[in-house]
Design a protein around this nucleic acid. Structure first.
Lengths: 220, 220
DNA sequence: CGTTGCATGTAAGGTGTTACATGATTAC
DNA sequence: GTAATCATGTAACACCTTACATGCAACG
């Protein structure tokens, strides 16, 4: 374990000292706030750590940025004085690793974003539903396969979220993340259920079409 | 079945003429296929029409591209021979308007995309949940307000989807879109419900914190 | 006679991805 | 010894948005 560098020490000087209103909080992309938010939940993290963590938490309700994006955002956050970094060198060799920590002004900015920035509408890009919407162009078997795979995906996500939710909810410090994780569990559960019902709707539809077709052939 | 129209007719010049496998279907961004998909559901539409329609259908499960994006995609689709356009001039004046229609090869390409392109994982960018995940930084009242507004949003979307679902489901031609719309109705219903439950979770949490704080004060 | 809707597009710029480059460490 | 994981970054490019420019038509 690591000896708790005073990150607050460095960033007091950054702003105008006795300024009452910090005001000029730039509107960074939501991704930047997401990364800063992850930092606000931890002591110190590397870019690599952040990516891994994003993959198993953020991922469920907000997408996980790529490595390069995370490194870029970290640079930007540091430029704004919202994060500090220090290079950690292992005792033997000279392999370096950059650990980031949120600063006091970063915490303030993140809080400001949460409390005062306009809330963007949730973005849903559901390519499975898009394909279902174009069902008239699809081969029924393929459509069924797509939906079946989506059901598996939703179930996998639900299970992962469930594991994380179970792991987190003992510690009261994680109350908010774990409440959100429970939301995620239910979300993916619903996702699975709705996809299952859509699947049987489409099966019914296919049967009707087959019946109608065979009736027609009969008439002929 | 399959009248197997030589879509080659229109785009034969582009390809190697007597190529058996249509093969070279370029992987356009999903937005392009979404636009082409809308065209596949209609006779003829202008860019403006497409935007309006995207706002009340695609919007529910896939985001609605901006006007400029739609116009750009239409140009691209036409370049690939997937859509044709004609200029419509009103009899009196010379105000022009460009109407687009899907071609046979466009229909084929769209079908190919639905049936054979790898299905991207659904993208969810839920800024409300992100804020809740950062609840430790938020003012409780503001957090409550954000969730309440989200509940209203979800309810508004549910209602809109419901209206469209009711309108569509008579015509058997719209079976797939209307099945997806029913999915949307349930999705937004669940979204509202989960947000309501999260709201009361957080309220409970806040009450616990207040209690603990006052206990502490009592001890002092 | 001004606002809203119809209608199309360009230009600039931000957001974010993939592919690539590099190299050490750990595990089998 | 070679594969996977840790670890960081650059460069090129695709995607998509906003702001702007333009102009007619209809409604009040």
């Amino acid at each position: 374990m690591r000896g708790r560098i005073p990150s607050a020490m460095t960033d007091g000087a950054a702003r105008g000292a006795h300024d009452e209103e910090p005001q000029a909080i730039p509107d960074l992309p939501t991704t930047a706030w997401a990364v800063l938010g992850m930092l606000s939940h931890a002591e110190e993290l590397s870019g690599y750590d952040l990516k891994k963590w994003a993959d198993w938490s953020l991922q469920f309700f907000y997408w996980s940025p790529s490595f390069s994006q995370i490194y870029a955002e970290l640079k930007r956050l540091e430029k704004h004085g919202y994060a500090t970094s220090r290079t950690v060198v292992s005792e033997d060799g000279m392999r370096g690793k950059r650990m980031y920590a949120i600063t006091a002004s970063g915490r303030e900015a993140a809080a400001h974003w949460v409390n005062h920035s306009p809330v963007e509408a949730p973005v849903l890009k559901h390519s499975v539903m898009l394909r279902a919407w174009l069902g008239h162009l699809a081969e029924p078997d393929r459509m069924r396969e797509i939906l079946t795979q989506h059901i598996d995906y939703a179930e996998k996500m639900r299970r992962r979220a469930q594991i994380d939710a179970d792991g987190a909810d003992t510690n009261p410090e994680w109350a908010y993340p774990s409440a959100v994780l429970r939301w995620c569990v239910r979300h993916y559960e619903a996702e699975r259920e709705f996809a299952q019902d859509l699947l049987s709707d489409l099966d019914k539809l296919a049967r009707q079409r087959t019946r109608r077709k065979s009736t027609k052939e009969h008439k002929q």
